[in-house]
Each structure stands twice: as structure tokens, then as C-alpha cells.
């Protein structure tokens, strides 16, 4: 494999582009320069740290440390799901439900990928496990947060319609079905769109990365297809579990709609 190494000067040169954006923001009084500066700084620091962590993990190849890194990734992603909700569930449920569903779905799919199609030696080798988990986790997180957001806001908005079905003797599953359907649709739309548009509109990042690193395009494409399947599987499993569990939490055994189990609306 051959690839062109970058030095600090190359990065500094590219950073000029962001500085140009900042200058434009100041000149046009867009007031974006502060956010842009902070985001750029965070990116640089976070990526260098991750680089360090990955380098260490790759030399250790320890199941314990790899597992710990994976757990940290899941917990951060769980916080992200919660932060994106307008009306999260009240109490520990708001963090626990999304994170739990994501943990199970992403880990299942990652372990499946590592033990059947990819099969590195050992199977938990962090060079394979962590990038795979990262890609699956990122997409599953988006799917779950979109699904939960659509479900909770939809139930609040359509409360009267859902209760109309309940008053006529519908079960909670039937009464909530229109909102559940919309929630799962919005959860799966990003991956469906990504699969439909990939290769035509945009070249996927991972495939591009492999090509830049010198992998033959035909091989990179196979890897990308595998990743798309894994992402679709993880997102589908995680979002379905999260939306159904949240629907159960927002109703009870007497088939009542329980919006009192949502946290109060944020200002």
C-alpha cells in the first residue's frame, strides 16, 4: 500500500480555508466566527487525542481496554441522543432507554461483523473493532434520536387523535400505530437515502479513505457495501427497539396514553 504522508505544514495550509471562513464571517457580520473557532479547536484536540488513544490500543490489543473504549463511545453517544430530544422521557429513562437500545444493537452488529464477514485475528482487534463500532454507532445514534424525537413530539401533537382511538376501544398498539410508523420512517430515512444516493451523489467517506490509502477501488467498494449493511442492520434494530420501548413507556397496561411520563417541555 502506498499513500502520501502529511506534515504539519500541509495541515496549516489547509487551515487557511477555515481562517478564510472566519474572516468572511467578521467582514459580513455573520457572528459565526466564535462558534467556528471553538469547533475547529475542538476538532483538532479531539482528533489528536483519539489518534493517541488508538495508537496505544493498537499496540496493546487487549480485550479489556478495547471494551472500555467501546463502552465510553456508547455512553457519549447516549448523551448525544438525550441532548437531541425536545421532550425526553422523565427521569433515568431518558438516558437509559436510548443508550440501552443503542448498546445492544450496535454491539450485536459489530460482534456479528467481527466474527463472520471480517474475522480479524484476534476477533476483538481494536484496529477493526473500534472503527466498525464507530461507524455503526454514529448511524444507530442518529436513527434512535430521530425515531424517539418523532415519536414523543408526534404523541404530544396527536394526543387527541390517539386518545380518540383509545376511547373507542382500540388497543394502545393500534392507537399509536400512525405515530410509531412515522417515527420509524424518520429513523430509517437517513440510511435509506444514503444507500440510494451513495456512489451517485457522494462517495462514502470510508471508501474514499481506503482508496486514498492505496486500496484498489473494487476492494474498497466491497468493504463499503458491507458497512452499509451493518449500518442498516444496527439502525433498524436499535431504532425499532427504542421506538417500541418508548411507546410502551408512554402508555400503560390499561391502554392509557401516559404523556405525564415525559419531562416538561424545554424553554
Amino acid at each position: 500500500m502506498s499513500y502520501i504522508q502529511l506534515d504539519v505544514f500541509d495541515l496549516a495550509l489547509a487551515a487557511l480555508l477555515v481562517i478564510l471562513n472566519g474572516a468572511l464571517s467578521i467582514a459580513l457580520q455573520l457572528r459565526l466566527e466564535r462558534q467556528l473557532f471553538i469547533a475547529t479547536l475542538r476538532m483538532i484536540v479531539q482528533l489528536f487525542l483519539v489518534g493517541l488513544v488508538l495508537t496505544t490500543l493498537f499496540t496493546l490489543v487487549s480485550p479489556g481496554w478495547t471494551g472500555l473504549a467501546a463502552l465510553a463511545m456508547v455512553l457519549f453517544a447516549g448523551r448525544e441522543i438525550m441532548a437531541r430530544q425536545d421532550r425526553p422521557l422523565a427521569g433515568l429513562w431518558s438516558y437509559g432507554l436510548g443508550t440501552g437500545c443503542m448498546l445492544v444493537a450496535a454491539c450485536l452488529v459489530t460482534v456479528f461483523a467481527l466474527t463472520t464477514p471480517v474475522q480479524p485475528e484476534p476477533w476483538y482487534h481494536p484496529r477493526y473493532a473500534l472503527p466498525l463500532l464507530g461507524m455503526i454507532l454514529g448511524n444507530t445514534m442518529t436513527g434512535i434520536s430521530l425515531g424517539l424525537h418523532t415519536l414523543t413530539t408526534g404523541l404530544v401533537r396527536d394526543r387527541v387523535a390517539v386518545e380518540a382511538q383509545l376511547t373507542l376501544g382500540a388497543t394502545r398498539r393500534v392507537a399509536m400505530l400512525p405515530v410509531t410508523r412515522a417515527a420509524l420512517k424518520s429513523a430509517l430515512m437517513p440510511i435509506v437515502n444514503a444507500m440510494a444516493a451513495t456512489g451517485l451523489v457522494a462517495l462514502p467517506g470510508m471508501m474514499t479513505g481506503q482508496i486514498l490509502a492505496g486500496v484498489a477501488p473494487g476492494e474498497a467498494v466491497k468493504y463499503q457495501i458491507l458497512i452499509m449493511f451493518l449500518i442498516a442492520g444496527g439502525t433498524g434494530l436499535g431504532a425499532t427497539a427504542a421506538v417500541l420501548a418508548c411507546g410502551l413507556r408512554l402508555s400503560d397496561r390499561r391502554h392509557r396514553l401516559r404523556l405525564d411520563r415525559l419531562a416538561p417541555a424545554r424553554e
Binding site: 387527541v160 390517539v162 386518545e163 380518540a164 382511538q165 376511547t167 373507542l168 376501544g169 391502554h255
Partner: peptide, 15 residues
């Protein structure tokens, strides 16, 4: 129970 004891709200909902 709700099929037998049916509530009709003042502003009924539609789905």
C-alpha cells in the same frame, strides 16, 4: 371497558 363505557369529548379527535 371503553367500548362499553364510551367517552365522547367536547372536541373529538380524528386520525
Amino acid at each position: 371497558w371503553r367500548r362499553l363505557v364510551t367517552y365522547l369529548p367536547a372536541e373529538p379527535g380524528w386520525w
